[in-house]
């Protein structure tokens, strides 16, 4: 069948729109996974046993199963219990929760490695345990894990392609639509790959800048 890249310009607008959706879903999921990760970490470390144990199980399941399978569960599961969410929202929840669990792992380790003296010092000036966590321990821990969380966010960008299978019109699904009309899979998947690669490079660039700033502020 050969290759013919001249078909691309006619579909650039769809692809470009898909690109914006990919960025939107990445940003939304990244935010959810970041704050979710902090909440999860605090639950995993400080919640009462009755909450902590089931939560550990949840974490374990999310780390031991593929994201794609989790997306199917969330998308169809929500429909099952009568919550009919747009695919985009289901996608954000799936990606966000999945990466929140990974972020939580990082943050837990960081919290535990924040000097014990910090907690004690905060308590001696009269902060409650919760206040000490919120104001002293967690902020320090989060700063320490920003570089590895950055890696997770870059992984999230690439995994966002998976939400195409539950019908979110992001970059991958847009490419598929163009392919449906033209029967040119190689050209359009290559184009999509190129877009992902560029976004990926941008994220890596931002990550390096942030890392440098953190390194300076220490």
């Amino acid at each position: 069948m050969g290759l013919d890249f001249t078909v691309i310009p006619g579909y650039l607008d769809i692809i470009f729109l898909g690109c914006l959706w990919t960025i939107a879903i990445t940003v939304a999921s990244a935010l959810l996974s970041f704050f979710g990760g902090i909440v999860f970490a605090v639950i995993a470390l400080y919640a009462p046993l009755l909450i902590r144990l089931p939560f550990r199980l949840f974490e374990w399941v999310f780390m031991g199963t593929p994201l794609l399978l989790q997306l199917f569960l969330i998308y169809f599961g929500l429909v099952q219990i009568g919550v009919d969410l747009p695919a985009f929202v289901a996608g954000v929840i799936g990606l966000g929760l999945h990466f929140a669990v990974y972020n939580s792992e990082l943050i837990q380790t960081a919290i535990l490695s924040v000097d014990k003296g910090q907690m004690e010092a905060a308590r001696t000036v009269g902060l409650s345990r919760g206040q000490a966590l919120r104001k002293v321990v967690v902020p320090q821990a989060v700063r320490a894990v920003i570089p590895p969380i950055g890696n997770n966010m870059i992984a999230l960008l690439k995994d966002s392609a998976l939400v195409s299978v539950i019908g979110v019109s992001e970059l991958t699904l847009s490419a598929q639509r163009a392919i449906g009309a033209t029967y040119r899979p190689f050209e359009f998947y290559m184009l999509a790959a190129a877009f992902y690669y560029v976004i990926n490079l941008c994220m890596e660039w931002v990550q390096r800048r942030i890392e440098r700033r953190i390194a300076l502020s220490r």
Partner: peptide
């Protein structure tokens, strides 16, 4: 850089659906 910088799913699609074209 290329294989870590793009989604594995897309790589799979290029190979499986795009492969016959080349």
């Amino acid at each position: 850089s290329v294989f870590r910088g793009t989604p594995a799913l897309i790589q799979l699609f290029i190979l499986y659906f795009g492969g016959p074209q080349i």
